[in-house]
Amino acid sequence: MNPALAVTTAVTFLWLGMVLAISFLETPLKFRASGVTLRVGLGIGRVVFRALNATEVALAVVLVVAGVLGGATGRVVAVGAAAVVVLVVQVGAVRPTLARRTDRVLAGEDPPRSRGHHAYIGLKVTKVLALLVTGALLLAS
């Protein structure tokens, strides 16, 4: 494997691991911790997801650049691009809606549940699958 594709592989699995650890482990567990109210959990989540999304954007850029430089196959490019597109939709379309609801909760309001949260989770699962397939294709090449 050439060095650029090795970087692409490492970045893919690093990104995948971060999403799994934060989104599917840390996030649900924090609301089970003693003394963590909805407002406190949302405040923490806002900081954590802002940092995660910024890191994801950086990893996506490295993934694209290293993949192009390494001459990734068309299948790797297509599935990796799907993960990047999902991230763009999450950050650009769904997260702002969730942030507005979080603002209301943090201001003491009790807004109705949002379907945006389900969309965010669905996109997250899609991104995880895309990253997993991208990594598997890279390992197989």
Rank of each mutant, 00 (worst) to 15 (best):
I44R: 00
N2T: 11
R75A: 15
R39F: 00
V40P: 00
T12H: 03
L87H: 07
V36D: 01
L98S: 12
L137T: 13
L25A: 15
P96F: 12
V7Q: 04
A99T: 14
L87V: 01
V48I: 13
R104P: 13
D110C: 07
R46H: 04
P96Y: 15
A66V: 08
E26W: 05
T9Q: 10
A140Q: 11
F31A: 12
A99Y: 14
T55Y: 02
A4F: 15
A72H: 02
F24Y: 03
V84W: 02
V61F: 10
P28E: 07
A58P: 01
G135F: 14
T55F: 00
F24Q: 02
T102F: 07
A130R: 03
N53A: 04
R46K: 13
A33H: 05
V76H: 10
V62G: 07
E56K: 02
P112C: 06
V128Y: 03
R101E: 03
L63V: 01
G45L: 13
L63G: 12
R50T: 03
M1T: 13
V84R: 01
L63W: 07
V36G: 07
A54I: 09
T102V: 14
V40C: 02
T102A: 07
R115N: 07
F31P: 00
S141C: 04
V61W: 14
L42G: 09
G71M: 06
P112L: 09
I22W: 14
L132W: 02
R113L: 15
G41D: 06
G122H: 07
G41R: 14
V40H: 02
E56F: 03
G67Q: 08
R46T: 08
K30Q: 04
R32L: 11
L5N: 08
F49W: 09
P3A: 15
L137A: 01
G92K: 15
L129A: 14
E26C: 12
T37W: 05
V133W: 09
K124N: 12
A4E: 09
T134N: 09
T37G: 09
A58W: 04
V64L: 15
A6H: 07
L87G: 02
A21P: 01
G17L: 11
V105M: 11
F49T: 05
A51S: 09
T134I: 08
H117G: 11
A81V: 12
L87C: 01
A54E: 01
A51G: 05
H118G: 12
G43L: 06
A4W: 15
I121F: 13
V19R: 00
N2G: 14
